[in-house]
């Protein structure tokens, strides 16, 4: 079911956390709400599920206006960051709780719980209490509980934040699988770009209560609308180099590079170069000295200090015998330079 947030405003006291936000999540889509800590992701999520009242704007589930409907009256499933399982109930009772409060017959609840338990693959753990479950298993129980009512939308608030790295990887694909299998409309709140890019159809990148870009992960990575977006996405992060644009691009350190085609701006700009686009395989052009090498198994990260000042990062296949202190002259892949204006907008 499509979810539409129009002109959403949220205030706590006289602090406005979100102002006039518009967001549409298509039916069956998984949307990421991505942004740094404190940008208002959870606030948006709580407004959608009805825990927080909206101070302005409207919320639609499909054609139904649910702006003033209570949390109980909306059909949403929520997985909370700490799972919020009921400690005194077994996994089965936890999952069945949303049906129990609807006074559904016991046998039916039992059947539904088993269906969900199969979906999230915890059929053998149903009579355990949360304290007797691992983090990943608790996560699955929480997911099953959120989905048992067949809600219109599924909201996930940092669902992977409390898991260790390996489990996080596993649950990432699990959640995506379950979302795909059920075709449910979902919103994933996260501050982890990898999670957002790997799990979601589209990403809404937030900053200070505003959505700064809404795009597919590839588009957002390749085509960021602002310096903030470019800097937020990508790991290892993009390198920024201030430059002057005229006939060519003159870096602050005096080195020059060719103007990329299509760039019309003149004057002060900031160039963004992703680490995979800078290296010996792209020819020559920028001279400097290697200051730091960080092996990462398959790849290694190389920090280069340019002659005359400025740092730029490169990521290279492991095995190249590069040592700190080595002088290098590497090139930039053509057509990959991102240029931003002094206000941070993409040029």
């Amino acid at each position: 079911m499509e979810l539409r947030l129009e002109n959403f405003t949220k205030r706590f006291g006289d602090v406005t956390v979100i102002e006039n936000m518009d967001l549409t999540v298509n039916s069956g889509e998984m949307m990421a709400l991505l942004g740094p800590s404190g940008c208002g992701k959870s606030t948006t999520l709580f407004a959608i599920c009805g825990i927080h009242k909206m101070n302005g704007g409207a919320l639609y589930f499909g054609d139904r206006d649910v702006t003033t409907v209570s949390a109980q009256g909306r059909s949403v499933g929520v997985v909370f960051q700490n799972y919020a399982l009921y400690p005194h109930m077994t996994a089965e009772q936890n999952i069945g709780f949303p049906l129990k409060v609807q006074r559904m017959p016991k046998a039916e609840i039992r059947r539904e719980v088993e269906r969900l338990a199969d979906l999230v693959q915890i059929g053998n753990l149903l009579d355990r209490r949360p304290a007797e479950l691992s983090g990943g298993q608790q996560q699955r129980v929480a997911l099953a509980r959120a989905m048992i009512r067949k809600p219109d939308v599924l909201l996930l608030d940092e669902p992977l934040a409390n898991l260790d790295a390996k489990l996080r990887l596993e649950m990432r694909s699990e959640i995506r699988r379950i979302q795909r299998e059920t075709g449910i409309t979902a919103i994933l709140v996260t501050h982890d770009q990898v999670e957002a890019m790997s799990m979601c159809d589209r990403i809404a990148l937030m900053r200070d209560g505003k959505i700064v870009q809404l795009d597919t992960p590839e588009q957002m990575y390749r085509n960021p609308q602002s310096q903030f977006v470019a800097g937020f996405l990508g790991n290892p992060p993009i390198s920024f180099l201030p430059a002057r644009a005229d006939a060519s691009l003159t870096l602050a350190n005096g080195q020059t590079i060719e103007r990329p085609p299509g760039l019309e701006a003149m004057g002060d700009v900031v160039l963004g170069i992703r680490p995979e686009h800078f290296g010996p395989q792209h020819g020559t052009g920028l001279k400097g000295k290697v200051v730091f090498v960080e092996p990462q198994g398959r790849e290694e990260l190389v920090d280069v200090r340019l002659d005359g000042g400025g740092d730029i990062r490169s990521i290279l296949p492991a095995g190249d015998p590069i040592r700190p202190g080595e002088t290098v002259d590497w090139g930039i892949a053509p057509g990959t330079i991102l240029a931003f204006g002094p206000n941070g907008d993409r040029l």
Binding site: C49, S70, Q72, F80, N82, A84, L85, F97, V101, R149
Partner: peptide, 15 residues
């Protein structure tokens, strides 16, 4: 009692 647990019960439909 963690507030998120109470929130959870509300979105689970409990009055």
């Amino acid at each position: 009692i963690p507030t998120s647990m109470l929130y959870a019960s509300e979105v689970d439909g409990a009055n």
